[in-house]
Amino acid sequence: MTHSHRVRRPRPWTSLLHVALVGWGVIVTLPLVWAVMSSFKADRDILTSPWSLPDRLHGENWVRAWTEASIGRYFLNSAVVVGSAVVLTMLFGAMVAYVLARYRFPGSRLIYYLFIAGMAFPLFLALVPLFFVVRSLGLLGTPLGLILVYTAYALPFTVFFLTSFFRTLPTSVAEAAFLDGCSHSGVFFRVMLPMAKPGLISVGIFNFLGLWNQYLLPLALNPEESEFVLAQGLAVLAVRQGYASDWSGLFAGLTISMLPVLAAYVVFQRRITSGLTAGAVR
């Protein structure tokens, strides 16, 4: 009678577990929902009660945050800097990883370990000299400077991840392409890169969110307010709107900066989760 012990007795702890699961869900979502709701409220309603629903949808908060508080500009700055940095990281990372994974040449181990070593050091250690290197290159406070720095610091993990990925790909297709007279770089761009797409997407998502999240580097290297990225802009906005008590504008700014990411997540949920956890389970 294998069936008998599968009959479920009502167990008190299953419902307790359920309460815990729902409870954590509420703890996670409540602050987010509250921020979105407050972004539609008038200032006085925000101050009187955190619970009241908006009397009407105050869309003007969003307009004010986007234009007057420059959230729109910071958003675009972030998109340009992070977008370019991710593209450059993927290109450079894939080139290095491919060469290291598929070619034997003197010094290849050394180069590989130089990149791996970059993952062991805390960013804070490099911060002071980095500031002066970037300044002496004339790149301080420029988007190009941030793009190059972001790329350089995203390379170690990208190279590490993609090197092992390229090693897993079969060699036969590349060899056939060589026999057909394809050049080395032709094989890379036309054969290997398309084959490596799943790995590229995982590490690309990982890099995008990591760099979008970056706060220390722009704070130190990007002091010009017109060039601020979103993270800097939000932090400054929080201080400034606090003085101006434009709470609704602040919540609108917050909502504008979190909704696109959450929306993208809901759509590409599986890809994003596996891309991010790929960093931990290698």
Partner: peptide, 25 residues
């Protein structure tokens, strides 16, 4: 749902909770 906070940049989280913790409102 549990994964949501992982996607928010640390600036968003910091500013958000600054206001979650605000004494009066």
């Amino acid at each position: 749902v549990y994964f949501f906070p992982q996607l928010l940049s640390v600036a968003v989280v910091g500013v958000l909770f600054q206001f979650v913790y605000t004494p009066n409102s």
